[in-house]
Design a protein around this nucleic acid. Structure first.
Length: 275
DNA sequence: AGGGGTACCTGCGGGC
DNA sequence: TGCCCGCAGGTACCCC
């Protein structure tokens, strides 16, 4: 499940094969239609063919392909999306859409569950999802003053606040669990009751966990749903301290890790360390 | 306004 | 073996 570090890894891996290349053709399968906007493949093609990809950036988990006329393609991998760039057509049951380049190479967007998105945005136009985002979790503007101001009147629990993309962009379930463990905070603590002195720790641990995960090319869980572009697995799972460790001993205090449900998601924490 | 619930999908593992 | 159920979870959108 791609969160910020996995998204970052995909961008880094495809950049050398995609940057400054010109789009020659666009194809989408019938099942891939629900990913794209505009949904008419002919219209989509018309908007992007002949344009050059000048940059690929990221805000939270959104991926932005910048085209040379100021237009953009905004993509989101959601739970199961991934990118693979190949020399030849890539046969895969869940290969939903492809961009072929004049200079050679094919960009493939694989997505088993078809929750991912791939949207063309005209120059100067807004993207709804992007415009709702708070600062990127790795941006300098995400600091303890920002976070404490943002949360001081929120009654919702701290776990939900960290997962709220309009508060901070890029944190998903796995890393929210890990960040709270390292900041010694109970996931159920109301945001407005987080001690002021703890905010620098939350911010520091957020950046440390995410940067560490980037170094390890992301997290691959037992179900192996995440692979990088070369089919490699992320290696951060060996560093996970609470996520998916129900009943296993806490590495700090040996107490069994507890699993609870918040907002219909599995949340893991040490009831002793994170009191 | 803001919070809660649910839909969107597919694969997989567990229980019977 | 096979079927059914629940789980995985990011975001949009509905409703109250």
């Amino acid at each position: 499940m791609p969160e910020l570090p996995e998204v970052h890894t995909f961008i880094t891996q495809i950049k050398p094969f995609v940057l400054s290349k010109t789009i020659k053709s666009f194809t989408v399968t019938k099942e891939g239609l629900r990913l794209i906007a505009p949904i008419d493949p002919k219209l989509f093609s018309k908007e992007i063919i002949g344009k050059q990809i000048t940059d690929i950036t990221r805000h939270g988990k959104f991926i932005i392909f910048h085209l040379n006329d100021g237009s953009r393609i905004v993509a989101h991998l959601r739970m199961s999306g991934r990118f693979i760039v190949t020399d030849e057509p890539f046969e895969h049951k869940h290969n939903r859409l492809q961009l072929e380049f004049e200079e050679g190479g094919i960009f493939n967007f694989i997505d088993i569950r078809r929750f991912a998105t791939f949207e063309y945005i005209n120059p100067g136009d807004n993207h709804k999802g992007l415009s709702r985002l708070g600062p990127d979790a790795l941006a300098d503007s995400f600091d303890s003053k920002y976070l404490s101001d943002k949360l001081k009147n929120r009654k919702k629990n701290i776990y939900s606040s960290l997962m709220d993309q309009s508060v901070v962009a890029g944190i998903g379930n796995i890393y929210a669990n890990e960040i709270l463990h390292r900041a010694l905070l109970s996931p159920t603590l109301p945001s407005d009751q987080v001690p002021l002195i703890t905010f620098p720790l939350i911010v520091d641990q957020t950046k440390e966990v995410l940067n560490m995960a980037i170094t390890h090319k992301g997290t691959t869980l037992i179900d192996k749903s995440y692979k990088d572009m070369h089919g490699g697995y992320g290696e951060f799972n060996v560093k996970l301290k609470v996520y998916a460790r129900e009943d296993e001993p806490c590495f700090s205090c040996n107490a069994p890790i507890k699993k609870i449900r918040i907002q219909n998601r599995s949340v893991y924490y040490c009831p002793n360390c994170q009191a």
